[in-house]
Design a protein around this nucleic acid. Structure first.
Lengths: 103, 103
DNA sequence: TTTACAATTCAACGAATCTTGAAATAAGAC
DNA sequence: GTCTTATTTCAAGATTCGTTGAATTGTAAA
């Protein structure tokens, strides 16, 4: 992963609303959640939720698929895993100090 | 770690210049680098480098210590480790899918 | 085809971020 | 003390981000 791509992914994670969305999607599992369910979960407006979902989808952290009238979102674990790998290996030199801090 | 704190840390990582600074500091090891050495390494102006260093220091990802006329910066591995732990455990539910993606 | 529902897009605005170059601060050398 | 070096801070401008509410698109049901 290149630095610019990693920076974009970190940018997608740099907002508390978006972190809460990701957590909800992880709990939901592979089936994911609809945009409306996510908005309910966050007690946020539809447009605000959609704004954040678009940021996550554009970065590739979440996947989106139409299902009848709803759009279903789910987490892309491969992408998050690639980001963690970047942080530990490419960015932080796979340092023993870091490994020790991340059990 | 709380969501807002994690979001701030991700924000500190959401810039390619700052990722390059971190990489240089990791390579430099515990001794760290002075602000001037970092600016040379990045081929960026002193003020621009200082702006990004302040962002990293304020988030706590890097530590700063005066040494004669220089300010010496170094990485705080504990803080990065705590962020990775948040991402894998608190945010992503310690999912086996994620563990599998992050060897 | 009309109606209702699900979700996004748009327009507007304020807030935050990033860059640049000039000015100010901090610390040591002379 | 003055001078020099190292770094930050300031001011200005451009860009991007986040929120709100209204308008729009897409899909299915009646």
């Amino acid at each position: 992963m290149q630095e610019i791509e990693a920076a974009d992914l970190f940018g997608a994670l740099s907002n508390a609303d978006r972190l809460r969305i990701i957590r909800a999607l992880v709990v939901a599992g592979p089936a994911g959640l609809s945009a409306g369910e996510i908005a309910d979960h966050m007690a946020a407006s539809a447009s605000r939720t959609s704004f954040h979902l678009s940021a996550l989808a554009e970065s590739g952290i979440v996947l989106r698929e139409r299902q009848a009238r709803s759009l279903r979102y789910s987490v892309d674990f491969l992408r998050i895993g690639a980001l963690i790998t970047f942080l530990m290996r490419d960015c932080c030199g796979n340092s023993p100090d870091l490994r020790a801090c991340c059990p």
